[in-house]
Structures are given as structure tokens and as C-alpha cells.
Amino acid sequence: MDVRYDCRYFKGTMPCIPHKDHGVECNSNCEYLDSIDQNILIIKLGAMGDVIRTTPIITRLKNEYPNGKIFWLTYFPEVLPESVDQPMGFRNEDLVWLRSLDFIMAINLDKEPEACALMNQLNIQNKYGFGLTKGMPAPLNENANHKFLTGISDSYSKSNTKHYLEEIFELCCWEYQDEEYLLPKYEPNEFNIELKNVDGKVIGLNTGCGGRWTSRKWPNNSWLTLINLLQKEGYTVLLLGGENEDEQNKKLSGESGAEYMGFFSFKQFISLVAKCNAVVSTVTMAMHVAIGLRKPLVLLNNIFNPNEFHFFAPSKIVGPDKNCDCYYLPECINGRSCIEEISAEKVLAEIKMILPL
């Protein structure tokens, strides 16, 4: 058999998908043959939302290297779209494989030492992003200097006027051209039966912020006030969150009558957010899912530079009137929780602007 090891669908450990689906054999006559001649590596380990907001570079890579095979190393391979040829977890068996390959280019967008060390160790022709210098994270080229400095200097970060996608495209020596997020395929009709009695425009409220970054957690009484205000206006409220928010959302639902369906797998969560007409969230993975779905968004932001966010639908950023004391800090300092200074009335006004009834 004339085995085509260079085919994008070739696995080696099992039959390929075209063989299973259509019965074709792995040879040069296969009508599904998609020959690759270059390997490309993306390293973006986490967090989950940051992985999602990095996916626009896939579109550019596919255009620049149509015969390239894209490997992506991450702690969250489940959030990657199908256009990534080889999603990889940060596991020893994956690292061993990577060290055996040659790459035409690699992009490392993480400054963690383990990610930077790989850029020094792997066989890479063209390197972008961050590597190690004298054993410490450092920019690999001049175009990575800006993104590097935003991570080590608060004053430099606060003065930044570029959004994240402009920054990472610049790091790769490209100009950003409105490439959008890419999400994995999901079932659009997943929750049709459960939501069949929901009328009107649905506002998804993502009530959590993760366990680490408590400085950006909007208090329960503010969420409850917002729910009541939205319901009085005629909106339907759908509570969103993960396992960490389950108890909180059950309580909010019980006190207000807001819809709450529980917590789900990542792809199911995408399906649920897709049912919303607009979303309210702090800076979370759910925020990035909403952006990827081109949903109007009201973003509650207190600790990040608002310039770093980029949206694909009408959206608003709401922050406290006074600058936050805990810039890029996971916990509040000086006895002030500035996220609590954002009023439910202010959030409602922005919702009515982006999604009038």
C-alpha cells in the first residue's frame, strides 16, 4: 500500500476519518488526500479564556501556510476549534513527540518558564513570542517587546492602547485584519426543549469569576438587584456559570425566579450562551465565549486595562467611577472592593443601550 504519511488526516495509530466514513484507502489516489509539508506550533497554555481569545491567529496561519499542520500545546485542548490539526495537552508523551518534529515556525504567547524553555529546546526555524534568556523569560524578537513589557510593568500596561489581538498579531510580525474567535463545533439546538417557554429577549448573566480572582467578583446582592430590574423591564434572565457558581445560581434563581439550568460541559455551555440575546459578565471564560458567538456584551471590568478588549458585536465596558487600587491583582487591597461600586442601575442602562426591547 502506498501510505501517505504526509496527509492531514493520517493518524498512524488508527484508521483515518475518511477511511472510516467513506471506505477510502490511504494512498495517492484517495480523493480526500490533503498533503502537508510544514509543521507549525502554537504554545498558549492557559488560562481557558486566553486560549479562546488567541484562536484568531489560526485563520491567518491557514491563509499563510495552507499546507501547514497546526499543533497547539495547551492545558485546555477541549476549547480548541477543529481547524487545529493536533491539539496537545502539556503531558510528557506530547512533549516527547514535539521534540522529534521540525517546525517551520512556532509562536509562544506564554511567559511561563516551561513554555519559554520549549522554544529553546525544539527544532524551530522561525520563532515568535517568548523564550529564555539567561534562564529567564524574554522576548525573542523586537516585535515581542511591547507584549513583554505590559506583563512586567504596571505603568507601561496602564498606558497601553492596543487590544489583545493587535498585540499578538504584532508579536507575529503581522497586522491584525479583524480575524474573529474560532470556537469548537457545538449543537445549536441543545437546549431548545428546556427553553421552549422562554419568551422575549434573553439576557445571560454569568455570575462567577473563578476562585482565584476574587477582586473582580460582583456581589450577589448586585446580581439580584439587576435580575429584578431586568425582569421589571420585560427581559428574561438566564443564569450562567460553572460548578463553582452552582450553589450561588440556585440561590439567585430561587429568590428571583430567573432561569437556571445547571452547569455543563464546555461545548454545552457554548450552546447555552448561544441562546442568549446579550450577556453580562466580568472578565471570564464566559465573556470570551460570548465574544466568539458575536453576542452583545456588557462587561464588568475593574482591574484590567479596558483597551485590551475587542468585540465583534455592540458591547459596553462598565467600571467603577474611581480607578481601581488593585490593578491586575487577584485580591482587593486597602479595604476597598471597587467592583462593588458598579451599580445594577448602571449595568441596566447599558443593557438597554445595546439590546433595547
Rank of each mutant, 00 (worst) to 15 (best):
K196V: 08
S215L: 03
D199M: 06
Q177M: 15
E194T: 08
Y164L: 01
P188M: 06
G200I: 01
L183S: 09
Y186C: 06
L229P: 12
Y186P: 08
E175V: 01
Y176S: 01
K201L: 10
E179V: 04
F191Q: 10
G210A: 00
N206K: 10
L224C: 10
E179K: 13
E166H: 03
Y164W: 09
N220V: 06
Y181M: 06
L229M: 13
G200T: 02
P219G: 02
S159D: 08
G200F: 04
E167R: 03
N197S: 14
S222L: 03
Y164N: 14
E166Q: 11
F191H: 10
W174I: 01
Y181D: 04
N160Q: 07
S215Y: 05
E180D: 11
I227F: 11
Q231L: 02
C209D: 04
C173W: 15
N221Y: 13
L165V: 07
E170V: 00
G204A: 00
K217C: 00
R212D: 11
K196L: 04
K201D: 06
N192L: 04
R212W: 12
H163P: 05
E175F: 06
N189G: 10
W213D: 03
E170N: 03
L165E: 14
Y186R: 10
K185T: 11
L230T: 12
W213M: 00
P188R: 09
I193R: 13
F169Y: 11
K185L: 09
L205M: 06
I227S: 08
L183M: 04
T225L: 13
N221R: 14
G210W: 02
N206Q: 06
K185V: 05
K162I: 02
R216W: 07
L182S: 10
H163E: 10
L229D: 15
L165M: 15
N160C: 09
W218C: 00
G204D: 01
C173I: 12
V202W: 00
C209E: 03
Y176D: 15
W213K: 05
K201T: 08
N197I: 02
K162C: 10
I193W: 08
F169N: 03
E166C: 02
E167Q: 13
L229C: 15
G210K: 01
I193V: 15
E179N: 12
V202N: 02
N206D: 09
K162N: 10
K185I: 14
L195T: 06
I168Q: 05
L224Q: 14
L205P: 09
W213S: 01
W174N: 05
D178C: 13
I193T: 09
W174C: 00
Y176G: 04
G200Y: 05
H163N: 15
L229W: 11
V202D: 00
P188K: 05
E170Q: 04
L183C: 12
E187D: 13
W174K: 03
N160H: 07
L229Q: 14
S222P: 04
I227C: 14
L229H: 09
L195K: 12
V198G: 02
T161V: 05
E179H: 14
I168N: 07
N206R: 02
K201I: 08
W174Q: 02
L182P: 11
Y181E: 06
L224M: 07
S222I: 00
L195Y: 13
W213Y: 14
E187R: 10
